[in-house]
Design a protein around this nucleic acid. Structure first.
Length: 483
RNA sequence: GGCGCGUUCGUCUAGUGGUCUAGGACGCCGCCCUCUCAAGGCGGAGAUCACGGGUUCGACCCCCGUACGCGCUACCA
């Protein structure tokens, strides 16, 4: 059995698109599952689209997601270099080989002639617009003259007419094209750089790529690649074209309708485990009911045969849910580390909370948060005294008799020695009984007094975490401040 | 326009000719739990399986057509 070698081959646009993440992930899962190699190759053959620092950003996003590659720009391998811009000589040499064999030819047409040709074809309502092979008729002498005169030129693929181009896609099955619909694609551009089509075929062959797993947008140009493999006399890799990721309106996932960069989701507080888990399920399912996965389980269960054919809408609601699920599964120690980072980046950075204290907060809030930052936004009262009191709750629960009742409660609390949850609870219940009122008459104002809010963990848990002195202090100032 | 690919609850999906009066998950609604909010448990609404023809004793599953959607149609990837 031939060894599995797959690659993720993005062009460095400045960030890692979530669709790109999904493609990278499937390549990674497939490689790991089959004891193969996962390679990162940068397709930077478009000089007009050069973006400073793009490769570094791409790599850092990929690594943040946990997708470690075996060979790449910064990981030594036997098949480098892994930046296409550093492989120009290879493309040139292979293009020349094709020219010598009559499978490709020099073209000296100007952009103006090409544009005019296209317009003419459109005006005549031809079924398709394609190059007219004008330069194919040039003789050797004419070509040599033009070449030595230094005039700009490209090299084009010489597509034969009336051929059937058939290939097998792992996900979609047999796919058939007519060569008459395939244009004489430019292989080497005027600036000497290769186009994607030439570069990806040459590299995939030289790098011994066994499976080309890429987005569906490449399906239509695969016949060009197949032709290239045939012309070179090379064995083709297996192809697998992945369904697209879509906006809620089912158009191709784009910036216009929300965040598309992995970095965006990272900044919003999503866990890499959740993002990876979510994106894995967009277009793939093991055939069972499992939805929660760690990457190791994905590796075990993944197979290309189970990848869907149709596009999947990127549904934030489900991502949110998965994030909460993954967050809740984290150990308290892991959460502590993450919470510390969150605090450092918040208005509470000036405070110094003991681990012991934060661990108790985590225990109390764990079931109530979907994001780490929510420890701060949903229970700010664990980090600072309430600055204000929720109006809806004070109007509902803070009656005219409340100040005196709650003050009595405070007095009871202050007599307790190292009170436990139960001690607080007993004290409150006893007072309620003595005052002949329901416990709710004390509990709700108490919650409001110590937290400023009406929601959160059980009040007694809050009291224990805050500690007696803090609690009595907060009750005191609440009595003064509310209303 | 041409070529290609696709089409099961709002969304992600299970389903490979009879087990489907179509299962799960997210979201939504209700109930339980309960000092609140979550979490959890239970239940509900939600898909004439895009449509129309075949094939078959029998079609979500096979074939053909139509519609719709998406992709490609560059010296961009």
């Amino acid at each position: 059995m031939n060894s599995v070698r797959v690659r993720f081959a993005p062009s460095p646009t400045g960030y890692l698109h979530v669709g790109g993440l999904r493609t990278a992930l499937y390549n990674y899962l497939f490689a790991r599952k089959n004891n193969g190699k996962f390679i990162l190759r940068i397709e930077d053959t478009d000089r007009n689209r050069y973006v400073e620092g793009a490769v570094e950003k791409l790599i850092s996003s990929l690594k943040w997601c946990g997708l470690e590659y075996d060979e790449g720009p910064d990981v030594e391998g036997q098949y480098g270099p892994y930046m296409q811009s550093e492989r120009l000589a290879m493309y040139k040499q292979h293009a020349q080989q094709l020219v010598d064999a009559g499978k490709a030819y020099y073209c000296f047409c100007t952009p103006e002639r090409l544009e005019a040709l296209r317009e003419d074809q459109q005006r005549r309502k031809l079924p398709q617009t394609k190059y007219d092979k004008h330069c194919l008729s040039l003789n050797k002498k004419e070509i040599d003259e033009k070449l030595s005169s230094g005039i700009q030129h490209v090299i084009r693929l010489n597509v034969e007419t009336d051929q059937k181009i058939i290939f097998d896609d792992i996900i979609r099955g047999k796919i058939e094209f007519e060569s008459n619909n395939v244009d004489d694609q430019v292989l080497i551009k005027g600036d000497g750089y290769p186009t994607y089509h030439l570069a990806n075929v040459v590299d995939d062959h030289l790098m011994e790529i066994s499976h080309v797993i890429r987005g569906e947008e490449w399906l239509s140009s695969t016949p060009k690649h197949v032709l290239l493999y045939n012309f070179f006399g090379w064995e083709k890799p297996r192809f697998a074209h992945l369904p697209l990721l879509l906006n809620p309106d089912r158009s191709k996932l784009s910036k216009r309708q929300g965040d598309v960069a992995v970095e965006d989701y990272r900044n919003k507080g999503f866990l890499k485990d959740a993002l990876v888990n979510f994106v894995a399920l967009l277009g793939w399912n093991a055939g069972d009911d499992q939805e929660f996965y760690y990457i190791d389980e994905l590796i075990q269960k993944f197979s290309l045969e189970k990848v869907n054919k149709s596009g999947a809408v990127f549904d934030l609601e489900k991502l949110n849910w998965l994030n909460a699920e993954h967050l809740r599964k984290k150990s308290n120690d892991e959460l502590l580390k993450m919470l510390r980072v969150e605090i450092l980046n918040s208005q509470f950075a000036i405070h110094n909370y003991p681990d012991e204290y934060l661990l108790r907060v985590i225990e109390a809030m764990k079931e109530r948060v979907s994001f780490v930052y929510e420890y701060l936004t949903k229970s700010p009262y664990f980090f600072e005294r309430p600055r204000e009191y929720e109006l809806a709750s004070s109007e509902k629960n803070w009656k005219s008799e409340t100040p005196s009742q709650i003050t009595k409660l405070r007095d009871r609390f202050s007599t307790l020695q190292n009170p436990t949850k139960e001690d607080y609870e007993n004290a409150l219940k006893q007072l309620a009984a003595e005052l002949n009122i329901g416990v709710g008459k004390l509990i709700h104002p108490l919650r409001l007094a110590v937290s400023g809010m009406s929601t959160g963990p059980g009040v007694y848990d809050i009291l224990v975490i805050l500690g007696k002195d803090e609690v009595t202090e907060r009750i005191h100032s609440a009595v003064e401040k509310i209303r």
